[in-house]
C-alpha cells in the first residue's frame, strides 16, 4: 500500500521558481549560462578583439579608444567574470570527478569558494586593467 502511494507520486515536477535552490545548483546553472554566453557572443567578440589588436597600428588605436568607453569596459569585465566563473566552477567539477569534495558540506563550501574566487579575480583583473 505504502509502496503504491510512493509510486503514484513520481515523477515529481518541481516548480523551479518556487523552491529555493542550494548554492551548488546556483553555481551549476551559472556555469551553464556563462558557457552559452561565452560561446555567443563571447567567441566572436574575442576573435574580433584579437584581430583589432594584431591587424595594424590603426586598428590597435581604434581598439584602444573603444575600451576607454565605460560601457565597453563594463562589458569586458562582465565577460571576464563569465569566463572566470566558468573556469572556477569547471575546476570544481574536475575535483568532483576525482571524488574530491563529494560530501555535502564540502560540496556546499566549494561552491561558495567558486563564487568568491571568481568575483575576487574579476575585481583584480578590473583593478589591473584600470
Amino acid at each position: 500500500m505504502e509502496a503504491k502511494l510512493l509510486k503514484k507520486q513520481r515523477p515529481k515536477h518541481l516548480n523551479l521558481f518556487k523552491i529555493s535552490q542550494p548554492l551548488p545548483a546556483i553555481v551549476s546553472i551559472m556555469h551553464r549560462i556563462s558557457g552559452v554566453l561565452l560561446f555567443f557572443p563571447g567567441i566572436p567578440l574575442l576573435l574580433y578583439g584579437l584581430q583589432m589588436l594584431l591587424e595594424s597600428a590603426d586598428s590597435f588605436e581604434a581598439l584602444h579608444t573603444l575600451i576607454q568607453n565605460p560601457l565597453v569596459k563594463g562589458l569586458i569585465l562582465m565577460f571576464v567574470w563569465f569566463g572566470l566563473h566558468h573556469l572556477c566552477a569547471g575546476i570544481r567539477y574536475l575535483a568532483l570527478d576525482l571524488h574530491y569534495g563529494i560530501a555535502l558540506a564540502h560540496a556546499r563550501a566549494s561552491s561558495k569558494w567558486v563564487l568568491a574566487v571568481s568575483v575576487t579575480l574579476t575585481l583584480a583583473v578590473g583593478i589591473t586593467l584600470w
Partner: peptide
C-alpha cells in the same frame, strides 16, 4: 569544448 557544451544545452 563549445561544441560539446552547446550540444548538451
Amino acid at each position: 569544448h563549445a561544441w560539446v557544451g552547446v550540444r548538451n544545452v
